[in-house]
């Protein structure tokens, strides 16, 4: 039986390559949000999210939009929308102005121009992990460090040059740095700088209109933010909720479904 007075929840699910973000809205604002690791099986992640939604009672009456790399895994979604459109919508909501969103994700990097609430243009880096979160992850493993360690180490280091264009070659560069006895701090700084370089090249070539804003997993690192803004030669802002921009955009889209 439908209860017409019962709240309808608008759920946005962003299944990224490393983390899956969920945002729950009602008619007036954000009600809840959570992150789960994606793991190797997107379907299982989607199922885990569903269970959480059920436990909290959101699933009783919900409209759900899925986005992200694994969006098709969410078989209970009312609609699937690409992460580009969702980042655009979520970014507009978070920053409230025309921005160029730089989303450094686990699998790819996207530059999205948002004007008047809509995506006006976008670019995705092609076929290449350099300049993505994946790159940092791979290098962290090489250095035997966790992601958090990586930023901490980098902050204390002097960046070594890592110039290879591709993750596979860059990895061998890192290995030769390690065997040459270079400091872990310096190598870590080199890795972060090289990612910031690639991202900033991509963004500059595409052109930045409005202010620059960073979303995606890397915006949690103030160190990365600082380096990126140095390379771009302009301030880069972010938002506490920026990690959820895609999921938020999906939830807003769900609200539009009515």
């Amino acid at each position: 039986m439908d209860h017409p007075t019962e709240t309808i929840y608008y759920v946005g699910i962003d299944i990224g390559s490393t983390a899956s973000k969920t945002v729950i809205l009602d008619e007036t604002g954000t009600v809840d949000s959570f992150v789960l690791p994606t793991g190797w099986n997107g379907r299982e992640t989607a199922q885990a999210i569903r269970e959480k939604l059920e436990e909290s009672g959101y699933a009783r009456r919900m409209r759900c939009v899925a986005t992200g790399y694994g969006r098709i895994c969410v078989d209970y979604a009312d609609k699937v929308v690409t992460e580009i459109t969702c980042h655009g919508k979520g970014g507009w909501q978070l920053f409230g102005k025309n921005v160029t969103i730089i989303d450094v994700g686990g699998q790819d990097t996207k530059i999205i121009k948002v004007a008047d609430g809509q995506v006006s243009d976008f670019l995705m880096n092609d076929k290449c992990a350099a300049g993505t979160g994946k790159f940092i992850e791979v290098m962290a493993t090489r250095l035997g460090a966790s992601l958090e360690d990586m930023y901490r180490l980098a902050e204390a280091g002097e960046p070594l040059a890592i110039s290879a264009m591709c993750t596979v070659f860059a990895e061998s560069e890192v290995i030769s740095h390690i065997s040459a006895g270079e400091k872990r701090e310096d190598i870590a700084a080199g890795v972060i700088h090289s990612v910031a370089n690639r991202v900033s090249n991509l963004a500059s070539r595409f052109g930045i209109s409005g202010d620059a804003a960073l979303t995606g997993g890397l915006c949690a690192s103030s160190y990365f933010m600082r380096i990126l803004s140095e390379k771009l030669g302009r301030p880069v802002e972010t938002h506490l909720f920026a990690r959820y921009a895609g999921a938020l955009g999906a939830a807003l889209t769900a609200r539009k479904l009515g």
Partner: peptide
């Protein structure tokens, strides 16, 4: 190798 990514880009393009 870029089939999946191209799919996403085309989809996003149509959404705009």
């Amino acid at each position: 190798s870029d089939k999946g990514q191209i799919g996403t880009r085309l989809e996003a393009f149509l959404e705009t």
